[in-house]
Nucleic acid binder design. Sequence first.
RNA 1: CGGGGUGUAGCUCAGUUUGGCAGAGCGCCUGGUUUGGGACCAGGAGGCCGUAGGUUCGAAUCCUAUCACCCCGACCA
Length: 586
Amino acid sequence: MELGNFVKTGRNMRYSKALIPTVKEVPAEAEIISHQLMLRAGLMRKLASGTYTYLPLGWRILTKVMNIVRDEMNSSGAQEILMPSVQPMELWAQTGRSVDYGKTMAHFTDRHGRENVLAPTAEEVVTSLAAGEINSYKQLPFNLYQISFKFRDEFRPRFGVLRSREFIMKDSYSFHADKESLGETYQQMYDAYCRIFARCGLEYVIVEAESGEMGGSGSHQFTVPCENGEDVIVYTAGNKYAANIEKADVDALPRAAENKDIAAMAEIHTPGAKTIEEVCKFLKAKPKKLIKTLIYKSDDKTIVALVSGDMEINEEKLRIIAGGSIEMANDDTIKKLTGADTGFAGPVGIAEKCDKLVIDHSVAAMAFGITGANKTDYHLAKVVPGRDFPLEGENVIVADIRNAVEGDTYQGKKLLFRRGIEVGQVFELGTKYSKKLGCKFLDADGKENPCLMGCYGIGINRIVASAIENGHDENGIIWPINIAPFEVIITPAGNDENIINASETIYKQLTDMGIEVLLDDRDIRGGVKFKDADLIGIPLRITIGKKSIAENCVEIKLRSSKDIEKVPVENAATKANEIIQSLKVK
RNA sequence: CGGGGUGUAGCUCAGUUUGGCAGAGCGCCUGGUUUGGGACCAGGAGGCCGUAGGUUCGAAUCCUAUCACCCCGACCA
């Protein structure tokens, strides 16, 4: 599977010979603008849920993005390789990710009964490769990358290519003998990413991120802010602090003053009221008066987490405290632990029964609250944290385990929220994979050590979608020139011989100059050509019509502007070339 | 995986309530008139009404099953 490996996009094209099936009407299935325009501009067609065929224009754009990525990766010293898309499940079992990755992993059994994974990423493969090749610190460091298809059986593919089941990713993996070396490469990748996104014409923000299933410590996410993004970025004014919502720290809320006068706990009959919503309705209370009790399993340990009823738990934060992967406990486990049906769990008396009780600051800050009674169909009111359940102890911890919300502060500064599309992420992996897969080297002292690793990903398709999300108007796409399918479109408006001749001449001149040019030689009305040119978003248009050709002139217009410049026919190609070169981000 | 919705022409969708000739707009083909912002006139092609079964004299329409696609949710304690 070769993904445009150093394939130069063809230089020129006649529209009449090209498959560019534009559509006027908005496809019913497309919700967000990038998805709509990718279909309308004839970039791609859907095959099945979350899988798309890229048509000539769409593939040109992807190819251009891949070539920018490749160029910057190569200049940063990374080496391109290509790993298989079909990987043995065994390898994933060795790192434990066959479980951690869960159902998102697409897999199949082959005719010999072996389980195979359709690569969602390649840490296992590359680490086992390195394990076989690395013996000495003298071989380190190195950085390998590939550009290839990735598969994820998303529970819900949506937003066109933003969350699809099959997509193109650039993934690279670096191997090091020490932390300094890892830090250096991490910084090189960070800088390379900045250049890549700048060259793709994207405005991006870099945020502190959580490393999720990847495991590891440091991580930054490159995010393109836009309304339709699936990620939420949290930041303080002036961008002094910016983080993914999965990561964003919040200040602890002020604790309620100690009040000895609060009456003792009271049991209330709440038949059938299992959810926060139902309890609130039943008791006419506000969610923030409730203590939400969530029960998780981490391996064979039971973890109970408490969050204010109006807040969301942040499973990533909890996962770090748990020290391993976590999942919601099933009804049986809950019943065994609390003695009640799901929906009536509470913190009173739970610390003695569970392996760990993690209390969010938002709960510790309450004067008193309502919570489950660990008895089916009953809740407790006037439950005072610290009095009715412990806030400290061997297996009790008060911590930040919730998502930031409007009104929160960090280091005293107000937190702001914005949506974005994640287009790239860099991770310091450490030794998580090298230890498990035996990727070791001998250091100068002859001692054996696991390699330190970093990994760095870029979503190629997401770059395209986010460029559209932030680059369009009511008429269609407005491409940044570096990733536009063509740099110029020539639009002859009319069939006069001198119009055709001038078009052909300029077409040839631009081609010879190395410009990527599309000639709209279709025998149709001018209006249709203009609409199509705008829809597919070619940055520069050269229009040749009756009026202008009478003065021996053509019109040059930027897709992004209304201004039209008249230029003599013989200067047109040179002038267009000049504009294009000035637009390019080097 | 749970809830909701939709499958009818290449696309967007009517028609289903109340069973009775398969529809419109856009697109496509032919001819003509047009020709700088998705033209107009005339003619035409194109559908096993998602699939399978059932009810009925008769099913796009009613019933059952199934598949696909879309939306919401998966924070439930």
